[in-house]
Design a protein around this nucleic acid. Structure first.
Length: 166
DNA sequence: GTTTTGATTGTTATT
DNA sequence: AATAACAATCAAAAC
């Protein structure tokens, strides 16, 4: 199935996400863009790639994924020999469907919490972008009523660079 | 040697 | 509204 190279390859080809329509509806057959992302970051420094968000908040894990994280550990304990991620995925999916809403409740709750954090991160992320991208600030609100004269202290502290450890 | 793929479902994002 | 894309994972496969 090389046809399903997904945007992962496209990303390395072009920083732009050339979202090409999947074959038909094979949704569960493409991802792995995270690993490439790591390399992309490195490459971004070397090349003019740019367009790489260092701290872009990723989508919050769904209840299923939260459950999977736990299930993975269990599965590995039961099948220490299994090294295929697909195996856990399959088993997890099967079990997930076997669970009742009550069982999924805690996972959904956690997922919901993650979502909240995601939104918050997204907000901060957007703010950062504006700050970074704002080259010229149009100050045209002279006659308008500026109410932001309070205190706009921006929390800029997370600026740790990724150092490579040998 | 580095990059990609594989598999699951749910949720976010875009159209 | 609907559909596409992506969220983790880790080792093997592919290039």
């Amino acid at each position: 199935m090389k046809a399903t190279r997904s945007r992962a390859a496209a990303r390395k080809d072009n920083n732009k996400e050339t979202v090409k329509p999947v074959e038909n509806r094979i949704v569960g057959k493409r991802k792995a863009a995270l690993q490439a992302d790591k390399s992309n970051q490195k490459r971004a420094k070397n090349e003019t790639w740019a367009k790489k968000d260092p701290n872009k908040p990723k989508r919050p894990p769904t209840a299923f994924f939260v459950f999977l994280e736990e299930f993975r550990i269990i599965y590995k304990r039961e099948h220490p020999k299994v090294k295929a991620v697909s195996a856990v995925g399959k088993a997890g999916g099967e079990k997930w469907k076997s669970m009742s809403n009550a069982e999924k409740a805690p996972y959904e709750a956690k997922a919901a919490k993650r979502k909240s954090e995601y939104e918050k991160l997204m907000e901060a992320y957007k703010k950062k972008l504006e700050n970074t991208e704002d080259e010229e600030e149009a100050e045209s609100e002279t006659s308008k009523s500026q109410v932001n004269v309070k205190d706009d202290e921006e929390s800029e502290e997370d600026e740790e660079e990724d150092e490579d450890d040998d």
